[in-house]
C-alpha cells in the first residue's frame, strides 16, 4: 500500500515493564524497600499492523491483554521498548506535540474536560489550545449540536452531566480540532442502550462521511458488530486475530442465548438436542435447527443458542413456544471475552 494511504502503522511493537516482586508476610513493606527482585512483564509483546485511511478498526482482547498499552503507544503517551509506530506518517514519540494536532483521543473511564466549569468553557479552552479559528469554532458548535446534541448542556458544569452527556461532550471535544485519526478507549462503557446508540450513530457518521480513521477498544460486541470493518484481537500482548467480524464468528461461533421459563416443564427435552423451526426436538442437527444448551428442570427453564446473523430472536421464541406455555423470557448477548476464549481454545 502507498504510504499516504496508511493512517496507522505499527511494526514489531513491544512494551515491557520491570516490576518489583511483591513481598508478603512479616514486615513485607520494609523488606520491599531493600528488595532487588524485579520481574519483566510484557504488556505488548510483538504487535504489527497497518490501518488504511478511513478504516474503522475494533481492537479487542481480555483485560490486561495489552489493548490500552498499544493505544498509549500509538498516541505518544508511552514509548515502546522496541519496534516503531507512525500515525499519519508521524512518529508519536519523536513528534508528540505535532501528532496530537492530527489525532483525537477519548478515554471512556476518565474525562478530559474541565470538571468544575460549564461544558462550553472546556470547548473554548480546547479551541484556544488547538488554534481553532473563531469561524471554525462556531461551525463546530452548530454541527456538533446536530450530531451529538451538545447544545443541551453547554452551560451545565461537567461534573453535573450524566454519563451519556459527558461521553458525548468528550467525543465532541476530541473532534474539535478535526483530527484525521480518532483513538477511543472504551467509549461506550457504562452507558445505557440509548446512550450507546447515540454514540455509535455518531461514530459511524464521522467515519463514513468524513473519512475519519477510528481505532476503538471495547468490551461490547454490538460496538464491533455495528461499527467495525475490521477486528484485531490481542491476547497476552500478541495479535491472535486480524480480519472481519463474520470470519471471527465463523471461527469462534457467537451464540446468543435465549432462555425461556415455562409454566410446566416440557417433557423429553435435553441439553445437546436440536430444536427445529417447528419446535420439534431431534438428536441430530438439521438445517436451520438451534442447539439446546441448557436445561434446568427444577426452574422449568430451557436455553437455546442461535446466531444473530442467521436467525432472529422472535423466530427462536416462536419455536420454543411450541414446547409449552411460556412464563418468562431472557436474552443473553455473547460477551467479547467469551468469543476470545473460544477463539483461543480453538487454536
Amino acid at each position: 500500500m502507498k504510504e499516504s494511504s496508511i493512517a496507522i502503522r505499527a511494526s514489531g511493537l513491544k512494551k515491557s515493564y520491570l516490576v518489583p516482586v511483591r513481598k508478603t508476610g512479616f514486615m513485607a513493606g520494609l523488606r520491599q524497600v531493600f528488595s532487588q527482585d524485579k520481574r519483566e512483564i510484557r504488556a505488548v509483546d510483538n504487535v504489527s499492523f497497518e490501518v488504511p485511511r478511513g478504516q474503522f478498526v475494533g481492537y479487542i482482547g481480555p483485560n490486561g491483554a495489552g489493548k490500552s498499552t498499544t493505544v498509549k503507544m500509538l498516541t505518544g503517551i508511552l514509548h515502546p521498548t522496541s519496534g516503531s509506530v507512525t500515525v499519519n506518517g508521524i512518529s508519536p514519540q519523536r513528534e508528540r506535540q505535532m501528532l496530537s494536532r492530527e489525532i483525537g483521543v477519548v478515554f471512556g473511564q476518565r474525562t478530559q474536560l474541565w470538571w468544575d466549569l460549564p461544558t462550553v468553557d472546556s470547548f473554548d479552552i480546547l479551541a484556544a489550545m488547538y488554534d481553532v479559528s473563531p469561524g471554525d469554532y462556531r461551525r463546530f458548535k452548530e454541527e456538533f449540536h446536530d450530531l451529538l446534541g451538545i447544545g443541551e448542556f453547554l452551560n451545565t458544569p461537567v461534573r453535573r452531566l450524566s454519563l451519556g452527556q459527558r461521553m458525548r461532550a468528550d467525543l465532541a471535544a476530541a473532534m474539535l480540532h478535526r483530527p484525521e485519526v480518532l483513538f477511543l478507549d472504551e467509549p461506550t462503557i457504562g452507558l445505557d442502550v440509548v446512550g450507546k446508540g447515540k454514540i455509535r450513530e455518531f461514530l459511524k457518521r464521522i467515519n463514513e462521511r468524513e473519512g475519519v480513521t477510528i481505532l476503538l477498544t471495547t468490551h461490547d460486541l454490538r460496538d464491533i458488530e455495528e461499527l467495525c470493518d475490521r477486528v484485531l484481537v490481542i491476547n497476552h500482548g500478541n495479535l491472535v486475530y486480524d480480519g472481519d467480524l463474520a470470519n471471527l464468528r465463523d471461527r469462534a461461533g457467537l451464540p446468543t442465548a435465549l432462555s425461556v421459563k415455562y409454566a410446566v416443564m416440557p417433557p423429553g427435552i435435553r441439553a445437546g438436542q436440536y430444536l427445529a423451526r417447528n419446535g420439534q426436538p431431534s438428536p441430530t442437527p438439521r438445517d436451520g435447527a438451534w442447539m439446546v444448551t441448557r436445561v434446568d428442570a427444577p426452574n422449568r427453564t430451557v436455553e437455546v443458542a442461535f446466531d444473530r446473523t442467521r436467525s432472529t430472536a422472535p423466530a427462536v421464541l416462536m419455536a420454543m413456544q411450541e414446547l409449552g406455555e411460556v412464563r418468562d423470557v431472557s436474552l443473553t448477548e455473547p460477551l467479547i471475552d467469551d468469543i476470545i476464549k473460544r477463539l483461543l481454545d480453538d487454536q
Binding site: M27, A28, G29, L30, Q32, V33
Partner: peptide, 10 residues
C-alpha cells in the same frame, strides 16, 4: 499500620 512501614521509615 505495619503495611506502611517503609514509607513511615522514610
Amino acid at each position: 499500620n505495619l503495611q506502611y512501614t517503609a514509607s513511615h521509615l522514610i
